[in-house]
Nucleic acid binder design. Sequence first.
DNA 1: TCACTTCATTCTGTTTTTGAGAACGAAAAG
DNA 2: CTTTTCGTTCTCAAAAACAGAATGAAGTGA
Lengths: 303, 303
Amino acid sequence: MKLNYHHLYYFWKVARTGHLTRAADSLHISQSALSGQIRKLEESLGHDLFIREGRRLKLSEAGRMAFSYAEEIFRQGEELTALFASGAQPNREILRIGAVATLSRNFQEGFLQPLLNREDLELSLQSSHIDELLRRLSAHRLDLILANQAVQGDEQNPWRSRLIAKQPVSIIGPRGMDIQGDFSEVLRGRSLIVPGPDNNIRQAFDQLCEYHRLRPNIAAEVDDMAMMRLLTRDTGHFAIMPPVVVRDEMKSGALADYGALPGVFEEFYAISIRRQFETPALRELLSQTEDNFLTRTPIGHSD
Amino acid sequence: MKLNYHHLYYFWKVARTGHLTRAADSLHISQSALSGQIRKLEESLGHDLFIREGRRLKLSEAGRMAFSYAEEIFRQGEELTALFASGAQPNREILRIGAVATLSRNFQEGFLQPLLNREDLELSLQSSHIDELLRRLSAHRLDLILANQAVQGDEQNPWRSRLIAKQPVSIIGPRGMDIQGDFSEVLRGRSLIVPGPDNNIRQAFDQLCEYHRLRPNIAAEVDDMAMMRLLTRDTGHFAIMPPVVVRDEMKSGALADYGALPGVFEEFYAISIRRQFETPALRELLSQTEDNFLTRTPIGHSD
DNA sequence: TCACTTCATTCTGTTTTTGAGAACGAAAAG
DNA sequence: CTTTTCGTTCTCAAAAACAGAATGAAGTGA
């Protein structure tokens, strides 16, 4: 016994206005018709949605529950109609990519390279935190997520994470410092800019420090790789990050790499969702990944 | 021109399975009927949702957009039917209260006091962070939020915050310490348990410290008041919190109040949303608030 | 108190929408 | 080159949604 969405819609309208007559008016149908449709919904659900007190309607408890769902359902529905009513339908294919906001821009650009400058394709790039992005992916508002962590899918959310690149993480600092020894020497007593506590580079770094009994002095915690790049360039502090982030500054000689951290990597994952209609562009992007992306220079392209 | 939700439902089924025939089977209608209904939806929206390539169906870009909305809409719808199908409809009124997870339990209990032990009413108490709670309130999944901050409503979310109580905040510590002077003396050089950085007690406290040039040593940042109570009781550290949180421990003599912090208060707000059908229980709760709650002892009841 | 209005329900016959079946066509399979 | 599969279109039958009239219950006002 299926839910009748038109009945639910009528119910929603009545529950919103609080009056059957007014709702009937705004729906341009007679109140008798409306009354009948509401009745049918109640019969099909097996519960009264309104409590009839004389000529008054009051939402029953079941009605309140149904109303809360209806509210969501028709809010979405009206958004959809508004979207279509506004005209302006895209005639090109759109690929919607979500990227964890803190991800290296260079990396994102490198990954999307094959699709840039394509006439027949529009790219929509959305930055947010992973939870929000996963929500959108599940709602099919995104085709792919770029993240620095894998996620476990389940029955309800058949997410699929695949590793698409892996980069070393180094100690980066102003050029020309006279420094010797391994990383633990380099770190000792130094003020560092590090990724925020949720970042998995940071977690690996903290573990490394703990293991080697290092207690580096944190000058700043920065979540955003682009911000980190600016701070490192402009403050003179040392920083923990993948060298690729400051590729330009290293080439220009402003910054230098003072050694990779053993066992610390930034990993990049592409998270997709199983769906009936896969866009060709997405397939292309992901096949590129498997075939070339891991073996070719991780970023090098934008020279 | 209204959106036909049954057409959209059919479209959704077809888009999910990818095949008109299979979808028709699972819907128990003929494929000719299904084909016609999809056509009508396309006509009413003014855009093709599928691209017909020979006998294949491919989602068009417009179709992908519509699908993402449909996915949300019918997920909700199926949740609703499942809820009703599972039987077990409540016959009592339910009042759904959301409380910011970090709020004092004593306070919550005191506020809800008039409704406890009522035969004709079921209480649903949900703890979460404010964003999530506001989302639920907007979706009418909650009737009221208890929070320690006011929120600004707008056109779309006609939230209404009202101050329902205000409590002093003190320095709490183990009983029997020989301490003199005002709060700045008490704080000097002491290890403190303080609320987390998002908490507005903490913010007021930080401002106070800054103003008085105090740099107290943070032993722990704890978001949850209940947790804070346990830690203060069991670690011997001093803590910044409203005395009411540890009322029991103070009565038993384990902890003592070493002075209120001037100008620092914990404020409690009730956030509701304007709606057509207000439950009597909610009205009772809020009128209680305005009439008595601010003037009577903030908590004192559970002795 | 007694009209009078307002608001919701139920019944009946009409209109609109939905759906099955047949005929057709285009692509894949054998 | 046939056969099967899959989607579209057409026609007519079945199902539903609907309006209008009759009814009843509750407020309103002289």
